[in-house]
Structures are given as C-alpha cells and as structure tokens.
C-alpha cells in the first residue's frame, strides 16, 4: 500500500524532478543522513563532505574523524569567521549532544577531502566512514552534486 502511494507520488512529481528520500544509516542512537558533496574540477582542489547526524539517545557522542577512498587526507574542519576573516581550522572532534541534530553544512563544519585520488564527478557517489567515539564506525554513500549545490538534494528521512 505504501509502495503504491510512493509510485503514484513519483508519477505526479516526475516533471518537477522529484527528490528521493535521503539515504540514512543508523548505529546505536545515531542516525546519519543527508550526505552530499560537490563536484570538483580535477584533483588538485580539496573537496567537501556534508552530512547530518541525529542523536536520539540520552548520551552525547562525538564525531572524531572521517575516512574515504576518494581522498588521501580527509579531515574535519570548521569554517569560522572572526573579525570578518574566514578560516577553517581542523576540528579535533564534533560533539553530537543527546537529543540533538548536528549538521556539517556550508559555512560551518565540513569534511575537508584533501589529496583527492580521482575527480568527483556530478552524479557519482562515494563512501565515507564516520568514526564516532561511542557508536563506532558508520558508513554512508555521499552523492556528488553540482559544484553549485548548497544542500542535499533529497528529502529528509522521517
């Protein structure tokens, strides 16, 4: 019944380029969803990784690092603007407080993918492993969106 409703919805929405539901992976109390990245020109420039992490538990967790086969030097960064000057220092860890959702999003926390092993082409996906202090490792596929993208192009999972 639910599938029928979805198919019907798709048929109606197709001309508007309907967005699919975001892929979502759970580990313990954490749900990781809305992963995305931007296409790159070649491999010389660093790429980014954005994602949303929800903690439905009663204990805080911490994202301590990321790994991906597409970059030899992936790192957590945070864009900060101080006295008008933007910088992006390395974030040792990102707190995921109990009951909250933390976003790695443009202008704030981001995965900085340095030393790309291949250019990221729009339409492709690549896996990223997020390392949490308590929940352990969580792997999610990140779709590569346009270089112009400003957010995930999927619907937030319920």
């Amino acid at each position: 019944m639910k599938r029928f409703a979805i198919v019907l919805g798709l048929a109606v929405m197709l001309p508007l380029a309907a967005a699919a539901e975001c892929a979502s992976v759970s580990a313990g109390d954490l749900t990781v969803t809305g992963a995305w990245s931007r296409a790159t020109i070649g491999t010389a420039r660093p790429a980014v990784f954005y994602v949303e992490i929800r903690n439905d538990g009663e204990t805080g967790d911490r994202l301590t690092g990321i790994d991906t086969p597409v970059a030899a030097m992936p790192m957590l960064h945070r864009t900060v603007v101080k006295d008008g000057v933007a910088s992006m220092p390395h974030a040792e860890a990102i707190d995921i407080p109990a009951g909250e959702t933390v976003s790695l999003a443009p202008g704030g926390y981001h995965g900085m993918l340095m030393e790309l092993t291949a250019p990221l082409a729009e339409g492709e996906t690549f896996p990223v492993v997020l390392r949490f202090e308590r929940a352990g490792s969580v792997e999610i596929d990140a779709p590569v969106l346009s270089i112009r993208a400003q957010g995930a192009e999927c619907d937030a999972a319920g």
Partner: peptide, 16 residues
C-alpha cells in the same frame, strides 16, 4: 580563491 571548498562556493552561490 578557487582552492577554497566551503566559503567561496557558498559566497558565489549567495551572490547568484
């Protein structure tokens, strides 16, 4: 600068 993966594409898209 064009090697800037977060702030610069965001600013360019804001301006667009």
């Amino acid at each position: 600068f064009t090697w800037c993966p977060d702030v610069c594409p965001t600013t360019l898209m804001d301006i667009s």
